[in-house]
Amino acid sequence: MVSAGAKDVAVREALFEARGLSKTYVVGEVVVSALAGVDLDLFRGELVVLLGPSGSGKSTLLNILGGLDVPTHGRVRFLHHDLTNAGEEILTRFRREHVGFVFQFYNLIPSLTARENVALVTEIAARSMPPDEALGLVGLADRLDHFPAQLSGGEQQRVAIARAVAKRPDVLLCDEPTGALDCETGKRVLEVLSRANQELGTTTAVITHNAAIAGMADRVIRMRSGSITGIQVNEQRVHPAELEW
């Protein structure tokens, strides 16, 4: 019981603590409110799906958590570091040491091979895994020396995931990782994400507007118009292969 309680506390350790986050943009002469007072905790080791239509503020939230953007109001903490008022340099170091990103359009460097795209990150990270191992993890051990233009979309996204997990980040932030892929390819990518989450214990947040993906998460956070409208805890995570859309 004591051990179980300890495990429970360990699992429930909050990696991120966001309180009263709001973000307003000025686009031309229009003021757009992208986030309106969001409170959220992300716990170590969990896989979270942020679900919402476009314009719901999920990308803004992810960008703030990932240190790409700062909130207009509210506070955000990562472990014991306050990111709210961090400067450019601290945010860069934060991204470098703790965060892995996966984007809808992969954002690979076209002039580098798969292995080199991963090495690009492992070279600047402290406790990374060898690029070959990371690419093995995503099932691309035989495509190491291919350039992005020689890979399919799904393969490119898996390279992007390998690149993100290779440095053993504390958190993996994925913005519509399957948005540009067909269903079957998308499921392979999600499988890789799920495996990375389970085998490496990396906290993972996946943004999507595809409700079908929600089943693979520990928790599903629904958003609309810059606010969280509900949080659903899945007792049982569905294997990505069994998802259907």
Binding site: G66, L68, E88, E89, T92, R93, R95, R96, E97, V99, F101, F103, N107, L108, I109, P110, L120, V121, I124, A125, R163
Partner: peptide, 16 residues
């Protein structure tokens, strides 16, 4: 610019 932005996001500093 997209590639350079990606690098910045991956944790490369302005200077790098």
């Amino acid at each position: 610019s997209r590639e350079l932005a990606s690098l910045r996001v991956l944790g490369f500093s302005q200077r790098e």
